[in-house]
Design a protein around this nucleic acid. Structure first.
Lengths: 191, 191
DNA sequence: CGTACCATTGATCAGGTTCAATGCTCGTGG
DNA sequence: CCACGAGCATTGAACCTGATCAATGGTACG
């Protein structure tokens, strides 16, 4: 257990005391490449942390287009909040880009934590704040910049994405087609 | 005080007990039409609720373009979180579209509440969750739909915006120019 | 070696942008 | 009370960028 604390401190950012309450609640799940953690229309029961691997959440719109909403890398927390919080059918698919291993926290266990110790309320609030600020940045990126600048912004902020994620998935994350992304890259490499 | 509780219950959504702790911490501020609550580069000290009126938050980008980030109507909470949470210089201007009155909660008072009673941690967490879910919808809207659909979505979701906000401000909120919005409206009115 | 999938490239198209001119409306001052 | 001006919406024309459709090229994996 002590071992685990050190091993996973970079994922959970908890004190040892709180880690010991937290960790036993987690299940692990293995998802093979191309396997799904969640599909559009499911209801999401778990809060998840990526132990290893990479996942992609994406939406299939009414025209059948596959649009990346986000990517989830080793060490990052994620879930389908809309569904988790309001028990609605979720609008996202979450799929493993490569073999991945997850830590799962059931939403009932999360609620329990909230009621047991206000520490977890702070933890939850801070996590929501982080998520909110990230979303805000994404909105600003989409609103304030043109496709080419969005690409260079992403390249600067998250170069690792380009090592693991096929370009066509990155394109829709940027709000453009794979062809346009290819042309933007070409344009930039010349300048 | 009891009077205030009833009067403002639709803004704060608090029990009377908690309202009585909360309300005395608030200051009110009047902002005349075109006056600023905040300017790009300021540091934000307050969490705010719109008592009456309407405000608009917007960003001036490096090309000098005015881009609406959001609108804030009577009864809604808002702030510049990035600045409030991390004490960074804020990237948004927040300006009164019409004469407006605000309730202000100082961030130190908010922190105090958090430490005094875990009820406020839940309150804070839930507010962040709401904000996060709203941001998520906004991202999805920008990613999944073309400008025309974004316009009709907005018309469906928030028709009141069109009663109070000049079209040119709505255009940049949708990520397009005023001219394009005008043409989209024309196109739609014909079909 | 062959297949499947992805990136690239070319040609054409559509829609949003830009620049410029005109119209409209509301608020202000003569 | 009317006339004017400011600011915004609309419209037109030319342009440009990204989308689409289609073909080719490259690469990894069975």
């Amino acid at each position: 257990m002590d071992n685990n604390f050190k091993l996973y401190s970079n994922i959970f950012h908890l004190s040892e005391f709180h880690f010991d309450k937290f960790f036993p609640l987690l299940k692990t799940r293995l998802i093979e490449k191309s396997g799904y953690f969640l599909r559009q229309g499911d209801r999401c029961q778990y809060f998840a942390f990526v132990k290893s691997g990479t996942l992609r959440s994406f939406h299939i719109n009414d025209k059948g287009a596959d649009i990346s909403y986000n990517f989830h890398f080793s060490g990052q927390p994620f879930t389908e909040y809309e569904s988790l919080l309001s028990n609605k059918e979720c609008t996202l698919n979450i799929q493993a880009v490569e073999d991945s291993e997850l830590f799962l926290l059931h939403k009932d266990d999360l609620k329990n934590l909230y009621s047991v110790d206000s520490y977890w309320l702070s933890y939850g609030r801070e996590m929501k704040e982080m998520l909110y600020l990230e979303s805000r940045k994404r909105i600003e990126d989409l609103l304030y910049f043109d496709p080419e600048t969005r690409y260079t912004n992403l390249l600067k902020k998250s170069p690792h994405i380009f090592r693991f994620i096929p370009q066509k998935y990155i394109a829709s994350y940027l709000g453009i087609t794979p062809q346009s992304l290819s042309r933007i890259r070409k344009r930039i490499s010349k300048s």
